[in-house]
């Protein structure tokens, strides 16, 4: 490769890297970060306040398909077993942060997962509760100070 071409490659990247970073910021405001992009995670959020730590949380509840409408809490890591732990929170934010309409195929997929976890039980819907949990550390232990539900979404498991 000619030195002139190599210099042009460098000039391209010197200009491209900040531009793509700006684009990552703009696109990231309304959606996911692009891939591939020359960025590392910023871990921008500061969860800690003066005394406490506040963390977003998604809780999943399966509702039984009978008159009692019993709620069973399911850990997302169990419901989505197979997904790496490092991707779980992002997966939840991307797919369950608004009232989505899921296809029959997806509803069947949810029912299959619930059958795997609770064989023989029948469920009519899934409730997803988003909230903020406040913790306080006292020595080697941690206490839950407050749990505030901010949004609730429901996925009906009835197919057409």
């Amino acid at each position: 490769m000619q030195p002139k071409t190599i210099k042009r490659i460098f000039l391209f990247f010197i200009i491209y890297l900040p531009i793509q970073y700006a684009l990552v910021g703009v696109i990231g405001l309304n959606g996911s970060e692009p891939w591939p992009a020359f960025v590392f995670p910023g871990f921008k959020s500061v969860f800690a306040t003066e005394d406490n730590v506040e963390i977003d949380e998604a809780r999943f509840f399966a509702i039984t398909d009978n008159d009692q409408q019993k709620r069973t809490e399911i850990a997302p890591s169990h419901l989505f077993e197979g997904l790496p732990a490092s991707q779980l929170q992002g997966f939840l934010r991307s797919n369950f942060n608004k009232q989505n309409e899921f296809s029959d195929e997806a509803k069947q997929w949810f029912r299959d997962q619930l059958e795997r976890l609770y064989p023989g039980q029948s469920f009519s819907s899934l409730n997803i509760e988003w909230g903020v949990v406040t913790y306080r550390q006292e020595g080697n232990s941690v206490s839950l100070i407050n749990r505030e539900t901010t949004e609730t979404f429901t996925i009906s498991l009835d197919t057409e």
């Binding site: 996911s32 970060e33 590392f40 490092s86 991707q87 929170q89 992002g90 997966f91 934010r93 797919n95």
Partner: peptide
């Protein structure tokens, strides 16, 4: 992998 909604950088 990252089409599940999370990029691992």
């Amino acid at each position: 992998f990252y089409s599940v909604g999370k990029i691992n950088h």
